[in-house]
């Protein structure tokens, strides 16, 4: 090492050269997202298959350790589940009542375009962000499967994130609990808009923050109350997220010092601690808007 075509390179020079390389790379990637193209292709065919393999291995290992769960644990879990069944039966009754109201409200907010109608493709999570600071993950579908940047990703009933990068056979998804994530949300019943943001501090406790919710008054001059458990969905003004996808449930709400806006916390509907399979909605907001405009 150190001999480059017969010239002895000092470590200080090597340092300067590589720092320059990094700065140039940063500059280029700021200017154009295409910089990563070639490297991305190489990664797609070398590292990603290995990630898939490792992931299978890890899944097998975790199954193996789970088999050693003691009977005691299973019993307590069984008890808990029984309790849950009881709770759910009660809840189910309530929900049946709410269903009627919901149908009406959906019409009211033109949420008839439920996300059951959006074309979706299933994907498997194969790796998660390597750092403890950010919350993103890699899925095993890419350009070949029709995935493109800005597609929304859901799991179960709730919004998970958005595709930020696409490789030939993989894509990166930034989850909504990531510290850099902002989603324009809306209270389902009142239609008031707010900003839902991920927060590293809150992510540990499985919560998210929402801000800029206006304090609105009804005709009698009373403040419109938002109840805990209120559903927050993606709003129609978002230019990246499709309208009406469930983000989570309000768990706490406060009025800020100015008295003009409210903020609070919500529990995301998707379970981020155990993400394995997700659904990618293969229609972006931009396309939806375009096709809607075409109709008019």
């Amino acid at each position: 090492m150190g001999r480059l075509r017969g010239i002895k390179l000092k470590s200080r020079h090597l340092l300067i050269i590589f720092i320059a390389v990094c700065i140039v790379l940063m500059g280029l990637s700021l200017l154009s997202s295409k910089t990563r193209g070639p490297l991305r292709y190489i990664a797609g065919y070398t590292v990603v298959p290995m990630q898939k393999g490792f992931n299978k291995l890890g899944g097998w290992a975790s199954d193996f350790t789970q088999n050693f769960q003691t009977i005691k644990e299973l019993r307590t879990e069984n008890k808990k589940l029984q309790q849950q069944i009881d709770d759910l039966t009660v809840e189910n009754g309530e929900l049946a009542l709410n269903q009627k109201e919901l149908t009406r409200l959906e019409e009211l907010f033109k949420l008839d375009q439920n996300y059951g109608d959006y074309p979706k493709v299933g994907a498997r999570v194969i790796a998660s962000n390597t750092s403890n600071w950010f919350n993103s993950f890699t899925i095993d579908k890419g350009k070949k499967d029709g995935i493109r940047v800005n597609m929304n990703v859901i799991a179960g009933s709730g919004l998970v994130g958005i595709v930020t990068e696409v490789g030939p056979n993989w894509s990166t998804v930034r989850s909504i609990i990531d510290d850099t994530s902002y989603v324009s949300g809306m209270m389902l019943t009142s239609g008031e808009k707010c900003m839902v943001q991920g927060n590293l501090k809150l992510a540990a406790s499985g919560k998210m923050k929402f801000e800029d919710l206006p304090v609105t008054e009804n005709e009698e001059g009373e403040e419109v109350k938002i109840e805990e458990g209120e559903q927050v969905v993606t709003s129609y003004i978002s230019n990246k997220f499709l309208q009406g996808i469930l983000i989570g449930y309000v768990s706490e709400i406060k009025t800020d010092e100015s008295g003009l806006t409210r903020y609070g916390y919500l529990t995301p509907a998707a379970d981020f601690s155990d993400l394995q399979d997700v659904l990618v909605i293969t229609q972006t907001k931009a396309e939806t808007m375009k096709s809607n405009n075409g109709k008019d």
Binding site: F18, I19, V21, C22, I23, V24, L25, M26, L28, S29, L30, T35, R36, L39, R40, A43, V47, A127, N129, T130, S131, F134, S136, T138, T164, T172
Partner: peptide, 12 residues
Amino acid sequence: LFYNDLLGFYAL
């Protein structure tokens, strides 16, 4: 390459 928008940042 996988998890950062700014290529070269962590490399640096």
